[in-house]
Write a protein that binds this DNA or RNA. Structure first.
Lengths: 201, 201
DNA sequence: GTCTATAAAAGGATAGAC
DNA sequence: GTCTATCCTTTTATAGAC
């Protein structure tokens, strides 16, 4: 029980935990929660399935951790950009340009797919369902005033602000889905194209 | 074995088959293929689970039937509108206005969710995966020339036609997802808003 | 900390009665 | 045509060895 062993062990534990989460993220994104077997995660992480249960209580717990990370991250992008000292249009632009790379690059798309599942599937743990619902209202609470303000300044097309907000989030989610189809790399919409949804006629 | 009994039996069989498919459509859409238990479908259809196997060979077969219906229907909308005798913009408008009610009304959204699953989940039967891949190329084969033509006429914004086609299909899929969140009825984008993606600056 | 072997449960699919 | 009871595979989760 020397201090050095303690520390080394903690490092190993953290490393393993991360390893499992990284592996689970990709399998969950591709197959969904229920279709993912613990043995799938174990294989992807190159660990025995027994060890998974040493680090997590259940499959649902792993999914919940990942979904929480994903939902929090996306919420933070919205909130941060909403509070910038800039015009509504510029804030919307900044927001979109922050989301686009997150949706397109690296492991970002996997997280988006987890979010999609959190929103769409009833097979998800209740805790995740609740969090998703809360985040959904959070989006509109930040986006709607932003859009309304932009409309008053004539920067954004007229119409129901909530409808525009829904259009925006729909587009983002749709892109994340499209991103996963592509074994071939499809050319995904740029921030400029997405922002056309808000352009006055 | 009188003719009357034969006919009546056929009616009953057709009725039951439809009943099962209708029930399965909604459960699959909400929970996904793997998370849906045969007993879920049976409960939704108000039939015993044993009877489901009298009409279908397996859970996968039911899903495959529904996915095929859904993918064929969506492909037909694209193809039909593509071949109209009208300007590219008008064809795109017709197409969008045909998709919007299909995505918003009645059981349409459920079918869209099945399509989303066909595209995104690896847990889906291989046959469905192949069909989805084929439909995906079909979309672009019809949309890309349409967009290119519209660009030549100055009706559609410049840029990679494939990228615009992907933007369009992403938006549609995203809307179908958003539609299912809403216990509360969210105001979904109109065809007019969707078409802004193609509007020249 | 990690693995293998085993128990326990869940769910898909079938058989046979009505 | 329909249901209930049963089988059996799959998968989750645990126990114990290393």
């Amino acid at each position: 029980m020397s201090p050095r062993n303690e520390e080394t062990n903690k490092q190993i534990r953290d490393e393993r935990r991360d390893q499992i989460l990284r592996a689970a993220l990709q399998v969950f994104a591709r197959k969904g929660l229920t279709a993912t077997k613990i043995s799938d995660i174990a294989a992807a992480a190159q660990l025995s399935h027994g060890l998974i249960y040493h680090y997590f209580k259940s499959k649902d717990e792993i999914f919940t951790v990942l979904a929480t990370q994903a939902l929090d991250t996306s919420a933070n992008i919205i909130i941060q950009a909403s509070n910038l000292p800039a015009t509504p249009w510029e804030r919307l632009k900044t927001m979109t340009e922050a989301i686009v790379p997150a949706a397109y690059q690296g492991i970002g798309p996997y997280y988006f797919l987890i979010v999609v599942q959190a929103f769409t599937s009833e097979a998800v743990p209740p805790q995740v369902k609740e969090l998703a619902a809360r985040q959904s209202t959070l989006y509109t609470e930040h986006l709607v005033p932003l859009i309304r303000e932009g409309q008053q300044r004539g920067e954004i097309a007229a119409g129901d602000p909530l409808q525009l907000a829904v259009s925006f989030t729909s587009m983002i989610q749709g892109i994340a889905i499209e991103k996963t189809l592509g074994g071939e790399a499809l050319p995904l919409p740029t921030a400029e194209i997405i922002l056309r949804l808000f352009k006055p006629a």
